[in-house]
Amino acid sequence: MLLITCPHCGPRDEVEFHYGGQAHVAYPEDPQALDDAAWAHFLFYRDNPAGAFAERWQHSAGCRKWFDVVRDTVTYEFLTPEGGSR
């Protein structure tokens, strides 16, 4: 049961949150302009580091806001102690 700090609500139990995977993956400006490989990479390829990982969470059972944090995927420690951004 991770303790996740929502930037709007403060620290809360993991079960209040929904995980969103890697952060900062923008939807392509013009998907039609991408070739199949580039589109496949947008769709299916995400970073998967063992270590610091910028990721998204939604406080789905709370304020319902999405936010970004950096978390260590090995120690599970949140490296953005004051809560995430956005």
Partner: peptide, 11 residues
């Protein structure tokens, strides 16, 4: 609902 919020908030 989650879908709408995700696309709105994050994209």
């Amino acid at each position: 609902l989650d879908w709408l919020e995700e696309w709105h908030q994050t994209e």
